[in-house]
């Protein structure tokens, strides 16, 4: 959707932020448990952005990154994705596998499945938190992983989201590693208009006109 998020007011946006904060809190805890490193558990920066600006936010468009995407199904539909810059992905691989691919061409089945697992754990913990909060059935479907230039990964996520549904907005957050500031990630949540409205109603936030 083009333009700003005029269909949602301040109250709705703060509810969206709160949902993202809680969901991401669960996801970062899961990531910490998995990697044995402590990630920033403070309220993450949450930005709600127009969907077409997503590819520009994540970083230098031609830098290599790792993207993990999965569609959301259930009462609420949409797409969620985590995007890690290449160096951050390497640091995650090192903490999980003790080693990491040096170049994109070095990614083997083990490295790829480690990222799929990261995606599973991050996304399902995020979805469970949202599901508990709203008492709605929301589940993540099996993830897919891409390692490519940032712009190609993020535009593909956006195209996939827009192809299937009318999307509301993208919720962007950043995760920082407490010990190693170089490890960072971006989380994108792209719910459909219907899905987001339903969640807002469940939270008691009046639907925007």
């Amino acid at each position: 959707m083009t333009g700003d998020n005029t269909q949602y007011g301040l109250l709705e946006m703060s509810a969206v932020r709160e949902m993202a904060n809680i969901g991401l809190g669960h996801a970062t805890t899961a990531l910490s448990n998995l990697t044995g490193r402590s990630f920033n558990m403070e309220i993450p920066k949450v930005e709600t952005v127009c969907i077409e600006k997503v590819p520009d936010m994540v970083g230098n468009p031609e830098d290599v990154c790792v993207g993990i995407m999965m569609p959301i199904e259930g009462d609420v539909t949409g797409h969620i994705a985590f995007v890690f810059p290449w160096d951050s992905a390497q640091s995650i691989w090192r903490s999980l596998l003790g080693t990491c691919p040096e170049t994109v061409g070095d990614i083997d089945e083990l490295a790829a499945s480690a990222m799929l697992e990261i995606g599973n754990i991050l996304n399902s913990s995020f979805m469970n938190a949202l599901s508990n909060m709203t008492d709605l059935k929301i589940h993540a479907t099996p993830p897919v992983v891409s390692v490519d230039i940032c712009y190609a990964v993020t535009t593909s996520v956006v195209a996939e989201a827009e192809l299937n549904e009318v999307v509301a907005l993208a919720i962007e957050t950043r995760i920082f590693d407490m010990e190693d500031v170089e490890t960072r990630g971006y989380f994108l949540c792209i719910p459909t208009v219907d899905g987001l409205d339903l969640m807002l109603r469940r939270l008691g936030v009046a639907e925007a006109a």
Partner: peptide, 21 residues
């Protein structure tokens, strides 16, 4: 028109925006 998400179960059948484009 690529399919950049190449790792994961059933990517060929799930994602086809690139091919459709």
């Amino acid at each position: 028109g690529a399919q950049v998400f190449k790792f994961g179960a059933g990517v060929e059948s799930k994602l086809d925006v690139g091919a459709r484009n």
